[in-house]
């Protein structure tokens, strides 16, 4: 026997069925929820969330740190000589030496930053587009 949508006597069993109702203030609670300031849509939400900013911050700090560690005169850092005025006249941008240390700092900071950005994406997708 197959399922048929026509002449289904089971429909008669459900005639006059009274559905279960939610609490009386349900509508008010929904309206309160949607009017709350925290309710933002994916369309109106800022493009970068807090996790995204953490990722960008990590990347920036990583790049600065790698530049500092990799600068040729690491002991007397170039920015110290510039701000103390000793070398301001002949000051040149730092010569950054790409060593294993700077490479590790750069790569790890970029990896951590990317992790944060991924968390940001996943969190936002789960929060707003679960439809």
């Amino acid at each position: 026997m197959t399922f048929s949508e026509d002449n289904d006597p089971t429909r008669n069993l459900f005639e006059g069925w009274t559905p279960e109702k939610p609490s009386d203030d349900f509508t008010e609670r929904v309206m309160h929820e949607i009017k709350a300031p925290s309710s933002v849509s994916l369309n109106t939400a800022p493009i970068i969330g807090r996790w995204g900013w953490a990722g960008i911050g990590t990347a920036v700090v990583g790049i600065i740190l790698a530049t500092y560690v990799g600068s040729a005169n690491f002991q007397t850092a170039w920015w110290k000589t510039y701000f103390s005025g000793l070398d301001r006249v002949s000051w040149r941008p730092p010569e950054v030496e790409l060593s294993a240390t700077t490479g590790i700092i750069l790569l790890s900071s970029v990896a951590i930053a990317w992790g944060f950005i991924l968390i940001d994406r996943v969190y936002r997708i789960n929060s707003y587009s679960d439809t």
Partner: peptide
């Protein structure tokens, strides 16, 4: 059930 129904209405509204 109320929580889910409320959540669903809110998601509808936002999307």
């Amino acid at each position: 059930a109320e929580e889910v129904a409320m959540d669903a209405f809110a998601k509808c509204y936002r999307s």
